[in-house]
């Protein structure tokens, strides 16, 4: 019997939505291993989110220490590895977020564990399905190490539902916190009132054809009308039109919203890799031969300058009619 240790990110008193996907994965894995889900919260202030975590996991382990004020892989990885060993872990997981991707391979190294990154599906006790080649193929991999490290992809695991009764919360000591010389310098945060790109039900993305950052304003108006997150192709982020963390694609964010608008995006495979899991895809592009139209459910061949303002007014009309 082995337990599944699910490293969960939190903000304030709540788990991040991405962590709920990890807990959904962890439940599946725990069934295969005949063990329990242990949610692990690490960081200064982690205690505050423990009650929320206990709604989703039968056991919550909290490592709350002032020395863990800023996330560093160097200080977090030994804690995750220690808690994993102490809790008889056969699987250790974290959602494939910026933190999960940075942290978990280091944890795997400390545990001598084989690792499956960015998985889309659990196919057995030690077998997982994951995208390769920018999502153009899916590989089924089997891992033979006694402990397995996994980063599930948020877009492939629906957020876990609450348990009938809350789990128990225990604490563990941080031990020696040694950053190996690494220092957190600062975070230049992008403030936004919109939903997180990876959580949003609707995403509005613009590409190179938007030409300037100023031109994105009309897309932002559309996004705010729909409660959507803003996205962009690599061409647009590289050109400095919009912040880098808007990038959707193989090397940016992977999204799978209900509705995805691709405006003035040609549809390079790197971009498609990040959004082709979306339920409904709308493409607006003036060039009918662009590859984006091959993945779009609905395409409109038009210039965005005309199409997007019209789209905004038509959606307003629709909303008013309801």
């Amino acid at each position: 019997m082995g337990n599944v240790i699910a490293f969960c990110e939190f903000t304030g008193a709540n788990l991040r939505t991405s962590a709920l996907s990890n807990l959904a994965f962890a439940r599946q894995a725990a069934q295969h291993h005949g063990g329990n889900v242990v949610a692990l919260l690490v960081g200064a202030g982690a205690q505050a989110a423990s009650a929320h975590a206990a709604k989703f996991a039968p056991t919550v382990v909290v490592v709350d220490d002032a020395k863990l004020a800023n996330y560093l892989a160097e200080t977090y990885a030994p804690i995750v590895a220690t808690v994993a060993k102490a809790n008889d872990a056969s699987v250790v997981s974290a959602t494939a977020t910026a933190v999960g991707k940075d942290l978990m391979p280091r944890v795997a190294a400390l545990l001598d564990a084989g690792m499956a990154s960015d998985i889309a599906k659990v196919d057995g006790k030690d077998t997982f399905v994951r995208p390769i080649l920018a999502g153009n193929a899916y590989s089924t991999v089997q891992i033979s190490t006694p402990t397995i490290v996994v980063t599930p992809r948020q877009s492939e695991f629906e957020a876990a539902a609450e348990l009938p009764s809350a789990g128990t919360v225990t604490t563990a000591a941080a031990g020696d916190v040694n950053a190996a010389g690494a220092e957190f310098v600062r975070l230049d945060a992008q403030k936004s009132d919109r939903p997180e790109l990876t959580d949003a039900k609707v995403v509005v993305s613009g590409g190179r054809g938007m030409k300037t950052g100023e031109n994105f304003k009309v897309l932002e108006e559309l996004a705010d009308l729909l409660g959507a997150a803003m996205g962009a192709s690599r061409a647009a982020t590289d050109a400095g039109m919009v912040p880098a963390d808007w990038q959707v694609g193989q090397t940016g964010k992977i999204v799978a919203p209900n509705l995805y608008f691709a405006v003035a995006i040609s549809g390079a495979i790197q971009h498609l890799a990040g959004m082709k899991g979306s339920k409904t895809i709308v493409a607006i592009n003036k060039n009918k031969d662009e590859p984006i139209f091959q993945v779009a459910d609905y395409g409109v061949v038009a210039e965005w300058e005309k199409a997007v303002p019209e789209l905004i007014s038509e959606i307003k009309k629709l909303k008013a009619s309801r």
Binding site: A73, E74, K101, P105, S117, L133, Q250
Partner: peptide
């Protein structure tokens, strides 16, 4: 860009005890 695993750098740093 074939396996898209994103593991080796972090694992190496972990094994060496180096910062990453």
């Amino acid at each position: 860009v074939d396996g898209d695993a994103n593991q080796v750098g972090q694992m190496l740093a972990g094994k060496l005890g180096w910062p990453q």
